[in-house]
């Protein structure tokens, strides 16, 4: 039985979140296979000659009833700009589902920390964690109020805390400056994070100080997504491993230089 597939999905929605972020909802032409939070897809971007390779995007949410997946995308370059033009009915070629996934705990108190577009894989994760009886808190960091993504949706799944760099909403500063880290006793037994690498490293340090396991979702420049080209490696306790197959989710303590 295959567990990875390649298909032309059909765009069912393109939702603009703000000036630089949008959500694509994509209908799978076949019944969706088992997909776990943290997994990603590789998209073939059409009409963008400078986008030669596929682009990896983490899966934002899965709707098995509608047979759709959602991707939360930041307009960063030519390829993502082309994707932002997609309209209902357009086709998009995907390889899916790729990579490992977050480990789902049960009946625990967990903290999800997302920075900017890094909230992308955390929505699907939050829903599955909630379905597994966990108490969830979500800490979202953004440049400013306008850049906080999906806050209302996350609020349905757990209490949301905000930090903004300019102080336009929530605590002023980065996610590590939020008061939640200074609570004693620290109430969480597990942390999941996705965002810019410096942010994730700082979160991993705090997790280590609180002696809590921390799962991080990495983004590395990638070609095949299948573990063949060995381009997206990250150095771990087990040497250089592919982010696309051994990751994208790693325990922070496995990553060289992430904890002390």
């Amino acid at each position: 039985m295959p567990n990875k597939f390649i298909h032309d999905f059909i765009v069912t929605k393109n939702i603009e979140l703000n000036v630089s972020h949008f959500i694509l909802e994509l209908l799978c032409p076949e019944p969706l296979p088992k997909i776990n939070p943290g997994q990603f897809v590789e998209i073939k971007v059409e009409h963008s000659p400078s986008t030669f390779l596929r682009r990896p995007f983490s899966i934002h949410e899965v709707n098995l009833q509608n047979n759709t997946i959602q991707l939360l995308i930041q307009k960063k370059g030519e390829g993502t700009r082309q994707l932002s033009y997609l309209k209902k009915g357009d086709r998009l070629n995907l390889i899916y589902p790729l990579g490992n996934s977050f480990q789902i705990v049960q009946h625990e108190k967990v903290l999800l920390v997302g920075g900017g577009c890094g909230v992308a894989p955390l929505l699907f994760l939050a829903r599955i964690l909630k379905e597994n009886g966990n108490e969830i808190k979500i800490l979202i960091g953004a440049k400013s109020k306008d850049n906080i993504l999906e806050k209302e949706i996350f609020e349905r799944l757990g209490k949301v805390f905000i930090t903004t760099e300019d102080g336009s909403e929530g605590t002023r500063g980065f996610v590590i400056h939020h008061g939640i880290w200074r609570q004693t006793p620290f109430m969480f037994s597990k942390i999941y994070t996705c965002g810019p690498e410096p942010m994730m490293k700082a979160v991993a340090r705090l997790a280590q100080i609180h002696r809590v396991a921390c799962e991080v979702s990495l983004e590395q420049t990638m070609a095949c997504g299948l573990g063949a080209c060995l381009c997206c490696v990250v150095n771990t306790k087990n040497g250089n491993v592919c982010t696309c197959t051994q990751g994208p989710v790693f325990l922070s303590e496995e990553l060289t230089g992430w904890t002390h």
């Binding site: 000659p49 400078s50 986008t51 030669f52 390779l53 590395q220 420049t221 990638m222 070609a223 080209c229 060995l230 381009c231 997206c232 490696v233 990250v234 150095n235 040497g239 250089n240």
Partner: peptide, 20 residues
């Protein structure tokens, strides 16, 4: 062999560079 450090790949016009 461990290969070279990351980054090992760069997309270029109609191709890619690798240094695995």
């Amino acid at each position: 062999r461990e290969g070279n450090p990351y980054p090992r790949m760069a997309e270029t016009a109609s191709g890619m560079l690798n240094s695995v």
